[in-house]
Computed example of a mutant assay.
Amino acid sequence: MNSTSPTERVDVLRRIASVITVPLGALASLSTIAIMVAITVDVVVRNLGGRSVPGLLEMSESALVATVFLGLAYAGATNAHVAVDLLTAALRPAVARVLIGIAWLGAVAVSVWFVVATLQRALQSTAANELRQGLVDWPVWPARWLIVIGFAAFLLVAVINVVLIVRGQPLLGEDDVDPDLAATQQARTASPPADPAAVRRDDHSTHHRPEEGSR
Rank of each mutant, 00 (worst) to 15 (best):
A182I: 01
A158L: 04
S60D: 09
W113T: 05
S111N: 07
V19N: 01
A128V: 11
V159M: 13
W113P: 00
W104L: 11
N129Q: 12
G76D: 00
G76P: 00
Q186S: 15
R200L: 11
A153M: 03
S191K: 12
R121Y: 03
M59A: 15
L64T: 09
W138H: 11
A90C: 07
A190R: 13
G213E: 09
V12S: 12
L70Q: 03
E58T: 03
I20D: 00
G49Y: 13
A38W: 04
T40S: 15
T118A: 13
A183G: 03
R215Y: 10
E174L: 07
T4G: 01
L119W: 15
L123E: 08
S18G: 09
V22F: 10
F114N: 02
Q169E: 15
E8N: 08
W113E: 05
L48T: 15
A122K: 00
V108D: 07
V98L: 04
P6A: 03
V19H: 06
A107I: 10
A152D: 04
V108C: 13
L181C: 03
V116C: 00
V136S: 02
F151D: 00
D195I: 08
V98A: 06
A183S: 11
A73L: 07
S214F: 10
A143N: 01
L171I: 06
R209E: 11
T184F: 11
V84F: 08
V19E: 03
G25N: 04
V112I: 14
E211P: 02
D178W: 09
G213T: 09
V53Q: 07
L56Q: 05
P93F: 10
L105H: 02
R215C: 07
P196K: 05
G168T: 08
S125E: 12
L27V: 14
R92V: 05
V68M: 12
E8V: 03
A198Q: 14
L30M: 11
A143G: 11
R200I: 03
L27K: 02
I100R: 14
L164I: 09
W113M: 13
R167Q: 14
N47R: 10
D42F: 02
G50T: 10
A63D: 12
T4Y: 07
A96W: 03
L57C: 06
L13P: 03
G150W: 01
L123Y: 04
I16Q: 12
N161F: 01
P23A: 07
P23R: 05
S214V: 11
M1F: 05
G173D: 01
Q120E: 10
